[in-house]
Simulated scan of single mutants.
Amino acid sequence: MRVRILPRETAAAVITGSVSAAGWAVAAATILLTVPVLVETLVQRERIADLPLPLILLGVVLGGIVAVVLRPRRWVAMLYLAVAGIATLGYEVTLLIGDPEIVEHSPYLVNRPSLALVLVGIPATRAVVGIAWSLLGFAVSVVTGVVAFAIVGMTFSPGFGPLMVLGLATLAYLTLASIQARIRSRVPNFDDLESETQALEHGEDLARRTTAVVHDTLLNDLAVVMSAPDRIDRRTRERLLVDLETLRGADWITASAAVNLPAEDAGLRNNLARMASEFQWRGLSLHLTGSPIAHHVLAADVADALLAALRASLENVLRHSGVTTAEIEVIADPEHVTVMVTDRGAGFDPDAVAPDRLGLRTSVVERMGSVGGRAQIWSAPGEGTSVIISAPTGQRGTS
């Protein structure tokens, strides 16, 4: 079973961002709870006529909070600080003008919107970023208060609310940073661990491929040389040269190790091996078999058509069959090279396929017909699918 684990940076952003999310929730609750206190205070102080403007300004601050929650971007947070700072300035001036004693009677009412400025922040991977946003919000709240008190000609009295909120936010960020540091020291980095595992698997896979290629070429060729008469005929020499070129070119490095095809069909074998490796990484395991009957050369256009038709058949298995394995059998006779692809998947009704659907009809049947080959498809719902692709051979010689 493979367990999906978030990358460390993403997990850190999620965890640290939770403080920002909590901060926005507290800020919104603070603004909402300010409304009934504001109404009650202004009614008691017989200032009902001054009530609409502070309420509107509180609504502006609350709208800014909602905007940042919906779109947590740096520029949105900066715009929030600017707009909410101006709204807070207007709110404080409105309360202080003509009623300086309100600071002594309800000090928390005056600086309540300033708390929402301190609780600004966006999801970040490091606690220091969250603390920096809180400090910036605190600075805006202080500047706003200084300007508001200066406008009404009073001595600035900031109160302890914004400072307490700054301390709590900093403590929360530092606590999470400490927890993350302890987790990092005890839990391995799964990204690095997976990279190391993939490197080991790649090395083992390369070793398996090397063994397979040596078996299919070098060992078989040594056996031929040992059992051959005093003089090696032309056909055997050509075969040895082809295998030598295969080893020299190192194309087999990208081939699959699970290929079990006859050495006589070296060229086709190598192309099929590369294709098998590709589909294996995409989630389709292929079982390849073949019978060592003949040794052929396929014309370039015929070989391309054969491999393209085979690829289309495998794509069909991968996309529509619902299974993860398929079988490929290669049969060579003096006149044809035939490849049969079989899966035990969902299957389909070939007669029910609409004429305007290209699919296997164009990519397999018509393609092989254009180079003198042929293709046949057998399938039924629930019975799997078999595709037989046959290509005409050219001259006898090296594949």
Results as ranks from 00 to 15, higher is better:
residue 29 A to R: 13
residue 62 L to A: 09
residue 348 F to G: 00
residue 210 T to S: 14
residue 288 L to I: 07
residue 169 A to S: 14
residue 222 L to G: 00
residue 248 R to N: 08
residue 21 A to Q: 10
residue 46 E to Y: 13
residue 14 V to C: 03
residue 273 A to C: 03
residue 259 V to K: 03
residue 29 A to I: 13
residue 359 G to M: 04
residue 182 R to C: 10
residue 219 L to E: 08
residue 377 I to Q: 03
residue 219 L to Q: 03
residue 325 T to N: 06
residue 102 I to K: 13
residue 49 A to Y: 10
residue 117 L to K: 14
residue 13 A to Y: 01
residue 79 L to M: 11
residue 215 H to A: 07
residue 176 L to D: 11
residue 343 D to K: 14
residue 281 W to A: 01
residue 56 I to G: 04
residue 245 E to T: 01
residue 219 L to N: 06
residue 92 E to F: 00
residue 162 P to D: 07
residue 227 S to M: 05
residue 273 A to T: 02
residue 21 A to F: 12
residue 152 V to D: 10
residue 311 R to I: 04
residue 180 Q to E: 12
residue 3 V to T: 04
residue 236 T to E: 12
residue 62 L to C: 03
residue 309 A to R: 05
residue 22 A to R: 08
residue 144 T to R: 08
residue 375 A to H: 05
residue 313 S to I: 04
residue 345 G to R: 11
residue 316 N to L: 07
residue 393 T to P: 00
residue 320 H to S: 06
residue 58 L to A: 12
residue 316 N to D: 06
residue 292 P to N: 02
residue 132 A to G: 15
residue 392 P to Y: 09
residue 225 V to R: 02
residue 52 P to S: 04
residue 365 V to C: 11
residue 78 M to C: 03
residue 275 M to C: 01
residue 397 G to N: 08
residue 321 S to A: 01
residue 312 A to W: 14
residue 190 F to C: 00
residue 178 S to C: 07
residue 274 R to G: 15
residue 261 L to V: 03
residue 44 Q to G: 03
residue 72 P to S: 12
residue 264 E to G: 10
residue 295 H to T: 14
residue 392 P to L: 13
residue 139 A to S: 11
residue 30 T to F: 06
residue 393 T to L: 02
residue 161 G to L: 14
residue 307 L to C: 05
residue 77 A to D: 11
residue 205 D to F: 05
residue 196 E to G: 04
residue 180 Q to V: 10
residue 329 E to L: 08
residue 64 G to L: 02
residue 307 L to S: 06
residue 231 R to V: 15
residue 366 E to C: 08
residue 20 S to R: 10
residue 70 L to W: 09
residue 306 L to N: 02
residue 206 L to R: 15
residue 249 G to R: 00
residue 384 G to S: 03
residue 226 M to Y: 05
residue 381 P to M: 02
residue 8 R to D: 10
residue 337 V to G: 01
residue 12 A to H: 14
residue 300 A to P: 02
residue 7 P to D: 11
residue 205 D to S: 11
residue 37 V to L: 14
residue 9 E to S: 15
residue 109 L to Y: 04
residue 147 V to G: 04
residue 208 R to C: 06
residue 85 G to H: 08
residue 144 T to H: 07
residue 304 D to Q: 15
residue 224 V to D: 10
